[in-house]
Nucleic acid binder design. Structure first.
Lengths: 136, 136
DNA sequence: TCGTCACTTGCAATTTAATTGCATCTGTAA
DNA sequence: TTACAGATGCAATTAAATTGCAAGTGACGA
């Protein structure tokens, strides 16, 4: 019984080949993938695209994957178990670098206080810039 | 000659009624709006939706508006001149609160160092949680 | 281990968001 | 005032995501 099987059971969701395939591909790539990309990595003949969308939506609700937005007009998704980190996206070549040491916890506390919300459960933070290879 | 006329001239873009209308509605609302919402506030008969999309895209490239993502499957846009602030979105009712004091500058420096990028020009940061009114 | 049934899947169709092509119109620089 | 690059409006198209429904399957209890 793998970690993903456990995780799905804990989330009270059925363990199916499609779900494990999606989780495994996200685990293997360790970077934010579009649904399109998830499907092509699993193989179009191995998963229906509607199932892929439904699976991703469910995994997001269950807290197993996070939605990442690169302002590319379609969402990307990443394993939540990769932990709290963020991305720097090159606006010229779409290269993505990770950022781990971001000190977001303090900001989250400040945001909670300032907004007067009851709680904050998630955040999305991406940086946009130009990578070394795209520098003229 | 308004600020917006100036801003468009500085960005080497023509000053047209459509562009001023989009900027004015964003100025008036002071919150992130979908293109759909921008159109309905201007009035469907006053601007073609294709023009609205093209205008927003141009304004974003020119740096006059910022794209904001609430994970609602369509982008929102806000005047860039509102300055560096962020949002807390209620996942139950979509209420949006602003966050001004977020200390993002330091994080941006850290992200630049860690990523090895040449420069960072933008960032997107949104928080998700539950507002007081949606608390059970 | 087997049967049941609620949940999941795959297919077709649809909705929603955004883009493209092209003819016409217009802002602006000379 | 005119010429023309760039902007606009309309129709059509592409891309992303969702819905309905019949058939299939995971997981629970006997």
């Amino acid at each position: 019984m793998t970690d993903f099987t456990d995780a799905l059971r804990v989330a009270k969701q059925r363990v199916t080949p499609s779900r494990l395939a999606v989780l495994e591909v996200l685990e293997k790539e360790k970077r934010p993938l579009s649904v399109e990309k998830v499907i092509s990595l699993i193989g179009e003949k191995n998963i229906d695209y509607v199932t892929a969308y439904r699976t991703i939506t469910m995994l997001k609700k269950a807290g197993l994957v996070k939605q990442i937005d690169f302002q590319h007009n379609h969402a990307h998704y990443e394993l939540a178990s990769l932990g709290d980190h963020h991305h720097v996206v090159c606006v010229k070549c779409d290269r993505v670098a990770d950022v781990v040491n971001c000190g977001i916890k303090k900001m989250e506390e400040a945001a909670l206080a300032e907004s007067g919300f009851q709680k904050i459960t998630e955040h999305a933070l991406e940086f946009f810039g130009v990578c070394k290879k795209c520098t003229v």
